[in-house]
Nucleic acid binder design. Sequence first.
DNA 1: GAGAAGATCTCCT
DNA 2: GGAGATCTTCTCA
Length: 200
Amino acid sequence: MLELKPLPIEFYARDTVTVAQEVLGKLLVRELNGVLLEGLIVESEAYRGSDDPASHAYRGITNRNKVMFGRAGVAYVYFTYGNHYCLNFTTEREKIAGAVLIRALQPLVGIDVMKRNRGTDDVHNLTSGPGKLTKAFSIARSENGLDLTTGKQLFVIESDRQNRFQIASSRRIGIREGSDKPWRFYIVDNVFVSRRGHSK
DNA sequence: GAGAAGATCTCCT
DNA sequence: GGAGATCTTCTCA
């Protein structure tokens, strides 16, 4: 039996790029009306603050991104492209902006529920992208600002797969500015990664 | 108050 | 491989 012990704030309250790398191979856990959903985090991206033109926080605090400036270990959920929500974990200490975008998961527990949420039977298409995984896990605007360290509703735990995979990095996806930074990280040869990246 | 762009997905060819 | 869907958020006047 896996122990459902959430990662503490100390895991998140560090350099954003470090957290983005170390969150790979951890388990994202969603508790929804007694139903448990679990997925292995296989792809992430780091977004920093005033030194990162691709980040929402680059131009300072706004109503949308204020969670990024708050304490670490909190969910930052935003709506984009008229259709999709994206899930991030906040990092760094208060007043220092930082967040890790969760780009892809490998479904492990509650796959039937994810299929229903996504309206497809294709397991490889359930959570292999940032907009897909939020729908599969039923994460939306109401989850913005949720504390990830309480072990309720939404949190992250260690998995037994630690160190049994290789990590590669690449340029981040879907942005214009700051696309030279190699701050996307993914597990090599995992079929649930959203795209084959050029490891550079 | 208006205009434009966006950390994407899906369907069509 | 490419474009449309769709609407929130930010910026500027």
